Simulated scan of single mutants.
Amino acid sequence: MVRVVANARGCIGAGQCVITAPNVFDQDEDGIVVVVDEQPSEADLPDVRAALDLCPSQSLTLTN
């Protein structure tokens, strides 16, 4: 199973991840990424991968 990891220190708060994969990502009060589902379902993986591609700071990764 894959796991989503976010580098909050690198996040610039663009919010593309939340727009693209709202089941997996959220933002805190400062706009910084929060992973709400570290092990997304297979159904959510295409959206997660799209969020990784859209992240302007490249602060999101998938690990095994």
Rank of each mutant, 00 (worst) to 15 (best):
N23K: 13
A8M: 09
L60D: 00
S41Y: 06
M1H: 15
D53R: 10
F25I: 05
D53C: 06
V5D: 05
L62G: 07
D53N: 09
Q58V: 04
Q39I: 13
G15C: 01
T63A: 11
T61K: 12
V5F: 04
C55A: 02
T20N: 02
Q39E: 14
V5C: 07
V33K: 09
V33L: 11
L45E: 00
S57L: 09
Q39K: 14
A6F: 00
I32N: 02
A21T: 01
D47R: 09
T61V: 14
R9W: 08
G10Q: 13
G15V: 01
D53F: 04
N64V: 11
T63L: 12
Q58M: 11
D47P: 07
T61Y: 03
N64P: 15
M1Q: 15
C17R: 01
Q16K: 13
G15N: 01
G31Y: 14
A6L: 06
G31R: 14
D28S: 06
E42H: 11
V48D: 00
G31P: 15
L52F: 02
T20S: 03
V36R: 12
L45N: 02
E38Q: 09
I12P: 05
V24C: 04
V36Y: 02
D28H: 04
V4L: 05
E29P: 11
A43R: 11
Q16A: 13
D53M: 06
L45S: 05
A8D: 07
G10S: 15
G10L: 15
Q58G: 04
V34N: 11
G13L: 10
